[in-house]
Design a protein around this nucleic acid. Structure first.
Length: 661
DNA sequence: AAGGAGGGTTTTTTT
DNA sequence: AACCCTCCTT
């Protein structure tokens, strides 16, 4: 037990409280990951069989690190492993076993964001609700909200209070039927279907209840209703639930997370014990004081007093530059100096921002000044056209009924299967229930498509089948076969043909190479590689940063990421850039409500409390957006942090804000 | 069917 | 500035 010697009394208590419900209110930097990890280790030492322990983390990265940490703490090798995974990955495991009870195929695939978007687009088109009235993204978030509240498409239609809502409900139905017809589930379905299983199949529920008798949930403040209920079902009998979180770091309300779950834990679990961790080991007092000051402006929260023993001579810095170009130049310039002259480790430095558009200018500045950087999180890689194409090909290989993906690539690169022919085939496919290949002969016989188109289509089907078979037979050659396939369809050639500028060509070919590399990396580490498994992994975890810390390049690279992706991480030096009204707090939050401002404030708090030694907040006095340069207003948070009036003149704030919109 | 020109729209955050 | 859609010509 001597490892526990390093823990403070509160931490020790949290680690050794094993029976019954436990709520650990752990402020930023108070060692909550440590507590969870030690709990797992102690439980195993106490004789609880590892596979009976379930620990749910928020990100894949956290799960990975927790696994590594537990194995190294245990010293002895154990034959069975505790279940440490994200919520979604946990649900996938359950569904792989039992989803057939819900009328889905055992081998369902997971629709990623790109799939969701094209399904939504198609649904909106079919409902004749143009992109003008509702963006695919809006439809997706509506659908997500419905699903989290367990509202079926039919119900949604009856509940609609406006025409737009009614049409959205129709689109929801269309979306869901297209999704199901392709044998896929989306992210929300993973939770909703698991809950469905638990609610309506008692014998399956008790199977899973008996499987786990210790359950831990990290970042509990960010659980949504479905997750909350799943957990409730799971621990119904044992009540051995430990949740850890911090209401001040709740930043996922927009995704359906409910802070009330952590705030009302004691009502939900009347026997709950509550332990507070309030000593911060991460930040210097200078940083922590300002962060606490900021949070005083949020009214509805658990009062807590975070304190730190760490001090430093360095103060938190507030810097303003004339525009975003100068801001980037200076921040990168300073980082260059720090890493090259002061020999600061680049991976100890993080640049944090609110939106995914912000890092662009920093990226080119890092490249120009030749400082190694890495852009973490974000789905930008998977939004690239080339990557989406290649994913679509893989999906067609993996799932012949994935019509959505097939449509994306059936004529790309162009092979003589035009839009109007596809349109006619689609009409015959009965809403995706039949494949376009299967209705092609009939369409040709009735002269709906030309003989030429027909033969291209059949040749394409043949090619797909050949490669599908090759890959199925020898999945260990996945990446080689796929590269060969791309060669055969002249994909790279198509890039050169389509993009005139050498710059564009190079970037796009690099994307293609990078994707191929992602496949080889997957193949190298997987014991039983398969397309389906690869796709599942990419859908659940995005691009694999998994081996980030192994690779020497990334080890020596400055970190760039959003506040959301920085959650749970820490860095000796942190730069928060673009501290302006409209960016942080984001414009949409400002337009919405006071509540959304509170969440933006928590976002700023999360950002500040990532910093261990040094924190710098910068802003640009003017910024170019949509091709227009506009003056900006300092973020209100800058004032709140330092006590209202401190900062430069703010007389014209309301007018400028109007102009910003 | 293919390719190009032109016009309009877009950017919150992600498992 | 990047992307998508639509329309027009070949």
């Amino acid at each position: 037990m001597f490892e526990l010697a390093g823990l403070n009394p509160a931490q020790k208590e949290a680690v050794t409280t094993w029976e019954g419900p436990l709520l650990v209110l752990a402020g930023a930097g108070t060692g909550k990951t440590r507590v969870i990890t030690y709990r797992i280790v102690e439980l195993i030492r106490r004789g609880i069989s590892p596979e009976r322990i379930l620990s749910v983390t928020f990100t894949n990265k956290a799960a990975r690190e927790m696994k590594e940490r537990t194995t190294s703490l245990l010293k002895k090798k154990i034959s069975k492993q505790p279940s440490i995974s994200t919520f979604h990955a946990f649900c996938v495991r359950i569904l792989r076993e039992d989803i057939s009870n819900l009328g889905y195929p055992q081998s369902f695939s997971i629709a990623d964001r790109g799939d969701q978007e094209s399904l939504a687009r198609q649904a909106l088109r079919d409902i004749k609700l143009g992109d003008k009235a509702m963006q695919p993204g809006d439809l997706i978030s509506n659908i997500s909200r419905w699903k989290m509240k367990a509202v079926a498409p039919q119900q949604a239609r009856h509940m609609a209070e406006s025409d737009l809502e009614f049409l959205a409900a129709l689109a929801y139905r269309k979306y869901q039927s297209l999704l199901k017809a392709s044998g896929s589930v989306d992210f929300d379905d993973l939770l909703v279907l698991t809950l469905d299983l638990f609610r309506n199949h008692p014998q399956l529920l008790s199977k899973h209840q008996n499987r786990f008798d210790r359950v831990q949930i990290d970042e509990y403040q960010d659980t949504n209703n479905a997750q909350f209920e799943i957990v409730q079902h799971l621990v119904e009998q044992s009540q051995n639930l430990c949740v850890v979180g911090d209401d001040d770091q709740a930043i996922y309300a927009w995704r359906g997370a409910e802070v009330t779950h952590i705030l009302n834990f004691q009502q939900h679990y009347p026997n709950a014990k509550v332990i507070r961790l309030e000593e911060n080991y991460r930040c210097t007092r200078q940083i922590l004081d300002l962060a606490n000051e900021l949070m005083k402006h949020n009214i509805t929260r658990h009062e807590k007093t975070l304190w730190s023993k760490k001090t430093s001579e360095k103060d938190v810095r507030f810097l303003a530059y004339s525009d975003e170009q100068i801001e980037a130049e200076n921040v990168v310039g300073e980082i260059k100096y720090l890493t090259e002259i002061e020999k600061v480790r680049p991976s100890d430095i993080a640049v944090l921002f609110r939106t995914n558009e912000q890092p662009r200018i920093f990226e080119s500045e890092f490249r120009r000044q030749e400082v190694c950087y890495v852009l973490l999180g974000g789905q930008s890689f998977f939004n690239r056209r080339e990557v989406r194409d290649m994913l679509a090909y893989l999906k067609v290989f993996a799932n012949p009924f994935d019509q959505n993906s097939l449509l994306r690539i059936v004529n790309y690169p162009p092979r003589g299967i035009g839009a109007s022919s596809v349109e006619k085939l689609l009409k015959r496919s009965v809403g995706g229930k039949k494949r376009i290949f299967d209705v092609a002969t009939a369409a040709r016989d009735q002269n709906e498509i030309s003989a030429k188109t027909y033969s291209s289509l059949m040749a394409f089907r043949g090619l797909i089948d050949v490669y599908r078979q090759k890959i199925t037979k020898q999945p260990q050659n996945l990446s080689a076969y796929f590269a060969q396939f791309l060669e055969e369809i002249h994909y790279e050639h198509e890039i050169s043909r389509q993009y005139k500028s050498p710059d564009q060509q190079q970037i796009r070919k690099e994307m293609m190479q990078e994707f191929l590399q992602t496949i080889s990396q997957y193949q190298a580490r997987s014991h039983h590689p398969s397309i389906r498994d690869f796709l599942q992994e990419t859908a659940l975890t995005g691009r694999d940063d998994e081996f980030a810390h192994d690779s020497p390049v990334e080890e020596s690279a400055v970190r760039l990421m959003t506040y959301h992706s920085a959650k749970g991480l820490e860095f000796p030096l942190v730069y928060m850039v673009g501290m302006e009204e409209g960016l942080l707090p984001h414009r949409r939050a400002v337009e919405e409500s006071e509540k959304s401002i509170d969440e933006e404030r928590r976002l700023a708090y999360v950002g500040m409390t990532r910093a261990m030694e040094s924190l710098t907040l910068t802003r640009a006095e003017s910024r170019t957006k949509w091709g227009k340069r506009r003056p900006t207003i300092p973020s209100r948070f800058l004032f709140e942090i330092r006590g209202e009036e401190d900062i430069d003149s703010t007389d014209n704030r309301p007018d400028l804000l109007a102009e910003f919109r």
